[in-house]
Design a protein around this nucleic acid. Structure first.
Lengths: 237, 237
DNA sequence: CACCAGGTGGTACCGAGTACCGTCCATCCG
DNA sequence: CGGATGGACGGTACTCGGTACCACCTGGTG
């Protein structure tokens, strides 16, 4: 229509780097330089040497360009849960949530840059939170549908899912803030805490520990009557 | 400039109902009739007999028009926590979260209409979730800063806040779906469960039961060293 | 060569949200 | 009584995210 002669030089140099990656890099750069709201999609596309149209071909929205692909991660977690052979629903979910942490760890500095952004920009923080809620929902549904020896109430499932996600978030944020050098060990410990929290004390007898024995004494009878058994239990038998 | 003669009949009839309420009603009606995305702010303003400008004077965004005033509720909860005289941080927070539930209950059908909307529209659901996260954050900070006999780790604070919010959400959603006739009692029970969950069994001695006393003995130390405390516990003191 | 398919650029359009200005009206005050 | 003041409102113009659609160019295939 306009008759402008199409310049072949407009085409980006054969960078080999796909447009999607160039766009993500440009977005992180610009958000960092000028802030999120102050950066337009037009500017991101310009720096990546593509058109605005192409931006929206690769990312559905301006926010999406900086977030990880939660969809695929969510799906892989769903798979992991479906094929899980753990003994309890809670342990299976605790096992699965590690995948989320590892996914962030693999991103390295990119995840930390994103955290810096989401901390400052309300809209981005809300989106991050909403993503976390989807994992929690998946976990809750999994726990609810779990068929095991002990049946769980809907409330218990809700609490367990929330606890697992909270433990994960706690460790993740520590690492994102640079407060943790070994997030993998930390998340293991935190999840062990969660499992212990939901494990009835009666089931803990003989729990392996550093010379610690936990004993449950249910006593209708005088204490002295059960003392021998108690001593045996504490002794480690 | 345009010279259009200003018609006094343009002015809305002296409805006495404030514009903000008319706008909210109109929004709920239209969202219900045509759906959220299919409704424009222009149409909402039109039905409320005000201009589009006035809409944005009362509500910062199209989403905000259907949501409760979380800001003021959040503030009143902050006050409640600041003046709380409960024995533990967890109980104080459990007490405070009831305010949130009551706030929804007072709305009645309006809250249920909102739930129907947020269930269908992704953007609204995300916003609702983000609001809940703010309560959780407030609770977490409160628990973390709590000074009491037993000091809590950051992880424990995170887990407690998550559990309280999860318990609240569980009961709230049941009520919103019409599955609960007595949400107040339910939330009391659910929060009692949460408190029990985080109460170390050692502290549960004397908990009311059918003539049964349950004692958990966690022993790094020789049994005889803790026997006195044990005798006292079984005795019921 | 013709044909097809995917990646791209360009344009037009919609709607949310912002900035600013002028007007109307109630109230208060001299 | 009349003028000043401030708050609520309507109107216009603008930015920008997001969508729809079309035209093009390229590389592979029969």
């Amino acid at each position: 229509m306009t008759g402008t002669s199409p310049l072949p030089s407009t085409r980006p140099a054969p960078t080999a780097r796909p447009a999607a990656e160039r766009l993500m890099d440009a977005a992180f750069e610009l958000f960092d330089e000028r802030g999120y709201e102050q950066t337009t999609v037009e500017e991101i596309a310009e720096r990546a040497q593509v058109s605005r149209t192409t931006f929206f071909r690769h990312y559905r929205s301006k926010e999406e360009v900086i977030f990880p692909r939660h969809e695929v991660l969510l799906e892989s977690i769903r798979q992991r849960l479906a094929t899980s052979t753990e003994r309890t629903a809670l342990i299976a979910v605790s096992d699965a949530v590690r995948l989320v942490l590892l996914s962030y760890l693999e991103e390295g500095d990119r995840a930390r840059n994103r955290y810096a952004l989401t901390s400052r920009v309300g809209a981005l923080r809300d989106r991050e939170i909403a993503s976390g809620a989807r994992y929690q929902r998946l976990f809750r549904e999994f726990i609810s549908s779990w068929v095991g020896p002990a049946s769980l109430t809907a409330l218990q499932a809700e609490l367990m899912a929330a606890a697992v996600v909270a433990a994960h978030n706690h460790v993740l944020r520590r690492w994102l803030r640079g407060e943790s050098d070994d997030p993998v060990t930390e998340v293991d410990d935190a999840l062990a805490d969660v499992v212990r929290l939901f494990t009835a004390p009666e089931e803990r007898v003989g729990e392996p520990g550093q010379g610690t024995t936990v004993v449950v004494l249910q006593s209708d009878r005088p204490l002295d009557e059960v003392l021998p058994a108690l001593r045996r239990a504490v002794a480690g038998e």
